[in-house]
Design a protein around this nucleic acid. Structure first.
Lengths: 120, 120
DNA sequence: AACAACCATATAGTATGGTTTATACTTTAT
DNA sequence: ATAAAGTATAAACCATACTATATGGTTGTT
């Protein structure tokens, strides 16, 4: 699919997609058979990556962190074991975020107690 | 306590604390009895607020969102019920983030399957 | 008294994550 | 064939969240 469709599929603006591609988050490929243009084509794997980018960004991961993950995930250099280790370490980070959110929830629950006790 | 101690207590740099105060996240008060300076004093409530700021930021809330929460939490204008409603709505947002993180975890688990199946 | 350590304010600079604009070529619809 | 819509690249611009620098006053120690 071309960038327009990719944008529609993912809900991410074309400008942002180009920004991501330029940043190195994923790569589209030009069709070798067509030499009149260099339109880039994106596959389902790119869609998957973008879903990860969207979710991870939403919960506070930076593009640099996400890029690092995606790069290793598809690296030819790394062994299967190492790739899995990289993804697993990201899963651990996600768990840490969940714990942090649980902490924030506790703080907010304390806020409510404070309010009920007229302390604010 | 003065800003130096506040910084040490919270682990947030003095520059950042001033930025937050200027942004309206919290306010220190000058001692009325001392007219020779306008050093600002911060209490335990400020420390609590900063803990919330730190936690909420970490998981992707913007300063504007957090400010809004903190402002309502301590507003004199709002009734107890409304304050509680504001904090509760933030708790709901936190729950949404947790769900989002769970989604990201699923996507990452799918990555691992892909890797194991040699699809990457 | 003098010197370091601390506080306040203002302004400028930086990094991240985009968005907008300009230019130019390609494809598609009529 | 020509206008509209789509694609690519580059550069300028923008908001957010700091960080650093400059200036000047205060406090505390010796």
């Amino acid at each position: 699919m071309l960038i327009n469709e990719l944008s529609k599929r993912t809900g991410v603006s074309i400008a942002t997609l180009r920004y991501y591609e330029n940043y190195g988050m994923f790569k589209g490929v030009s069709d070798e058979k067509v030499r009149t243009n260099n339109y880039k084509h994106y596959d389902e794997l790119v869609v998957e990556k973008i879903e990860i980018i969207k979710g991870a960004k939403e919960v506070g991961f930076t593009l640099a962190e996400i890029k690092d993950l995606l790069e290793n995930w598809h690296s030819e250099q790394l062994s299967v074991e190492k790739k899995i280790a990289v993804v697993n370490s990201k899963i651990n980070e996600v768990d840490a975020k969940i714990r942090q959110l649980t902490e924030v929830k506790k703080l907010l629950a304390r806020c409510i107690e404070d309010i009920e006790n007229g302390m604010c």
